[in-house]
Design a protein around this nucleic acid. Structure first.
Lengths: 238, 238
DNA sequence: CTCATTTGTTAATGATATTCACTTAAATTA
DNA sequence: TAATTTAAGTGAATATCATTAACAAATGAG
C-alpha cells in the first residue's frame, strides 16, 4: 500500500467494475423493464460469467438495493441542480420547479422510479435501513425549501398540523432527528410528507396505475395540483 | 345440455377448481408474501401437477390478473358493506368511515393490496384494461358519495377545479363516461381522484415505503389527513 | 521470487414457468 | 346403449433463473 490516493489500484478497478455492472443493469432495465433484471443477462452483456458477479454483490437483492440507492441519489441530485440557478427567495418558483422536476425525473427514469417505489419484486426483501438515507434526501430538499419560505414569510398551513395528536407528534419528532442539519418544524414536516405523498401518488398512477392511461399523461392534472399546493400555502410570486 | 341452471355440471366443477386455485394462491401469498407466488407451490398444495394449472389459466400472469381483479372487488365490497348501515345523509361520517375502511382493508390484506398497486411485472401492461373496471369501483364509491353530499349541500372545492385547462377537462370527461350510472361533475371527479391518490399514498408508505417504519403505523397521521379532507370540503357533522 | 489474496472460470443444484405428447375420465351424440 | 368427441390431468422435456462449490489464473505484497 503506497497510498497517495485513498484507494489502491485494485480497489479502483473494483469500483469501476461495480459501476459497469450497475450500468449494465440499468441498460437492461431500460430495455426490458425493471422486473426483467437478470444476473445472467448482465454478465452476458459484460462478457463475463454469472458467478463472477457474486464477487461484487452478495446476491441479486444486494444489486437491486445498490441500484435503488443510486436512483434516489440521482433523483436528489437532479432536484438540487434544478433549484441551484433559481433566485434564492422566489419560493413559489422554487417549489414549482422542484415538484415539476420531480415528475420529469420520474418520467425520464421510469425503471428506476419503479425500482424505488414498486412492490418488492421476486422475493426481494427491501433493505429499508440501507435505502432510507438516500430516500430521505428528497424529503429533505422539499422540507428545507418550505422551511426557508416559511421563515421569510409564514406559510398558510392547516391548523391541525400545529396540534397533532400525541402519537403523530412523537413519530414526527423521531423523523425530525434524521435531519441534523437544519430543524424542520413539525407542521412544515407534516406538510412536506403530505406533499411528497401527493406528488408521488400522481406520478405513480401515471406510470403504472390502473386508471385510464391518458388521464394523467402530459401532466396537466399534475401541474394543476402543484399550483393548488402553492395556493394553499399562500405562496405567491414575489 | 339440459340446463335448468345456466352452468353445466362440468362448468360448475371448473368454476370451483378455479376458485380453489385462487384460494391456494391467496393462502400462499398470506404465508410467504405476494412476490413468492409460484405455480408449483399452488399445484403441490392442491395435490396436482403444475401443468394442470394451465387448463385453467393461460399462464402465471393470467392468474395474477384474476387475483388482482378479485382483490379490487373484495375491497369495493368491503367499502360498500361499511357504508350500508350508516345514516344516508351523514356525509361526513360516511366519508370518514369510507376512508378509514379503505385503510383497514389494505392493512388486513397487505398481499392483495401489494398485488394491486405494486410494480407491474414484465409484459404485464395488457392486463390493465381487464383490471380497470374492478379498480374503478372504489373510485366510483368515493365519487358517488361526494356527489350526493354535494347535492345536499354544496361542498367547498378548490376554485381551480372548476376551470381546468383544456387537456385536463378532456381526459376527465373521458373518465366520466366510464360511470354511466350517475354523473359525477368534473370538479368532484377531480377531488375524488386527488383524495384517492392521497389516501393510497399514505397507505402505500405505511405498507412498503422507505420512510421510517413507525412514522405511519397506527394510522394517526392517516386519521388526521382524513379529518383535513373533510374540513377542506366543509363537511361537518349534521 | 514466493506466498496469499483477488478475480475469474466451469460444473452442479434446485427452483422456476412453460410446452408437448399421451392417458384417462366425462359428457355428448348417434 | 355404444361410439365418439371433449376436458382434465400426468410425466417428461426445455429453458431460464439464482446460487454454491471447487478449482485455476492473475495480481500485489513482502
Amino acid at each position: 500500500m503506497h497510498s497517495t490516493s485513498s484507494l489502491s489500484r485494485r480497489e479502483r478497478l473494483r469500483e469501476t467494475t461495480i459501476e459497469e455492472i450497475k450500468e449494465a443493469a440499468r441498460q437492461q432495465m431500460a430495455e426490458q423493464g425493471a422486473a426483467a433484471l437478470s444476473l445472467g443477462a448482465i454478465a452476458r452483456a459484460m462478457g463475463m460469467t454469472t458467478p463472477a458477479l457474486y464477487r461484487y454483490f452478495e446476491n441479486r437483492d444486494a444489486l437491486v438495493t445498490a441500484l435503488i440507492i443510486d436512483a434516489y441519489h440521482s433523483l436528489a441530485d437532479t432536484l438540487e441542480d434544478a433549484l441551484a440557478p433559481l433566485p434564492a427567495t422566489d419560493y413559489a418558483l422554487r417549489l414549482q420547479t422542484l415538484l415539476l422536476s420531480y415528475r420529469l425525473w420520474a418520467l425520464q427514469h421510469p425503471q428506476d422510479y419503479t425500482l424505488c417505489h414498486g412492490a418488492p419484486l421476486a422475493g426481494y426483501e427491501g433493505a429499508a435501513d440501507a435505502i432510507r438515507p438516500a430516500a430521505l434526501r428528497t424529503l429533505k430538499i422539499i422540507g428545507f425549501l418550505l422551511t426557508e419560505a416559511d421563515a421569510a414569510s409564514p406559510l398558510h398551513l392547516p391548523p391541525s398540523y400545529f396540534q397533532p395528536p400525541a402519537p403523530v407528534r412523537e413519530t414526527l419528532e423521531a423523523l425530525q432527528g434524521v435531519f441534523p442539519e437544519r430543524d424542520i418544524p413539525i407542521p412544515l414536516l407534516t406538510f412536506t410528507i403530505m406533499t411528497w405523498i401527493q406528488v408521488h401518488g400522481l406520478i405513480w398512477q401515471e406510470l403504472s396505475g390502473h386508471l385510464p392511461a391518458r388521464l394523467l399523461q402530459g401532466g396537466a392534472l399534475y401541474q394543476m395540483e402543484v399550483q393548488l399546493i402553492c395556493q394553499r400555502l399562500g405562496l405567491a410570486l414575489p
